[in-house]
Design a protein around this nucleic acid. Structure first.
Lengths: 193, 193
DNA sequence: TTTATAACATACCGACTGGTACATAATGAT
DNA sequence: ATCATTATGTACCAGTCGGTATGTTATAAA
């Protein structure tokens, strides 16, 4: 049997992910999706099942890559404070230097779909939980290394930092003054005593 | 001249606001909007101009009421720490006790529309800015009263608290454990030394 | 070379979208 | 009472939505 598939599924998924990330679920039409993916509608349905399933695959792909990126960033510096500062400042810099303004795909999904679709409520919750664990482990590393106060409550601090990161990402969508953002980051980081 | 308008514009706007708040701009259809508003489509167009303009009017109405509510909450207690705690814990309690999960209309709009529509980028930015000023004034009141450390940087702390509130509101959409939310609030409030 | 299989492209489906033309009903000014 | 004006309700518009039926093309087994 068999004519073999002519397009690269991963590349197509990646293209779909970028459009969903930029526009959200509803506003990304099948016409534009398949155009960006470089395939026809029936090919998309054969490969991914439906628009919702395509979206879910895109989100899973994103969260996996995103978690790895965050972990790498936090491990890239000996100093835990420096690592978190680099993470937060990187978010700010990306938003001001890029012309786009996509924010975080998982956060966008939390706002658009999680309240109405349990599947995405769970998916996004698990991602946030995972990030909070990465944060907590990083803080614990700083405590062990003597950089951070042993009295610091690692879990609560990790959660507060994560919430701040989410808030910062959302706030940047309204494009506040750069100074506003920078100053916010500076204060948030004082959570790491 | 003139037959007079039979419906209450404010009540209709309020109904529209609630649906936009719950579903967002795209997902709220004119059919459902006008049904909830209790009017026909031509009446809506005569009174508000277009779906976008109706949405804008709804958002303006929301932000005005929201700012007043936040200010009242922050002024409701002598202790500034208590006031902020009440504000944050109120957000958490509302989300867990209500069955709905609307979050904040302004935040939802920031995520859905601000990146693609300058009008809503500006509208939401101004609202956040306004809230940050309310926060700052409250913190300054606490400093003057001797409750808070005079070394506390009021503006930065206000911004950090606002970002945390936004992050918390968004995070709640994924319905994390209540303990997770409560613990986060506790740590965030340590920004107020 | 024939044949079964699956991916391809085209062209279409009913449903719904935001928006409006039009006829009717109601009101105040004359 | 007439008339101009405006709100209301119905019924419709073209366009787009997500999804699919169908005919064609390519491929590997036989």
């Amino acid at each position: 049997m068999v004519r073999q598939r002519e397009f690269d599924e991963d590349a197509a998924l990646d293209a779909a992910m970028r459009l969903f990330w930029e526009k959200g679920y509803e506003a990304a039409s099948l016409t534009e999706l398949t155009a960006r993916m470089g395939i026809q509608r029936p090919s998309m349905y054969a490969a991914f099942g439906s628009k919702k399933e395509l979206f879910e695959a895109a989100l899973r792909s994103y969260t996996q890559a995103h978690a790895a990126r965050v972990r790498a960033k936090l491990q890239s510096r000996a100093s835990v404070k420096d690592a978190f500062r680099a993470l937060f400042e990187g978010i700010v810099a990306d938003e001001y230097e890029g012309s786009l303004n996509r924010g975080c795909f998982s956060i966008n999904t939390m706002v658009e779909l999680a309240p109405h679709d349990e599947k995405f409520e769970i998916l996004t919750r698990e991602h946030q939980l995972y990030l909070s664990v990465i944060f907590q482990e990083t803080i614990e590393r700083g405590i062990r290394a003597g950089e951070l106060d042993t009295a610091l409550e690692a879990r609560g601090t990790a959660q507060a930092l994560l919430v701040s990161l989410i808030g910062l990402t959302v706030m940047l969508k309204s494009r506040p003054d750069r100074q506003f953002a920078d100053n916010t980051v500076k204060t948030v980081l004082t959570l790491l005593r």
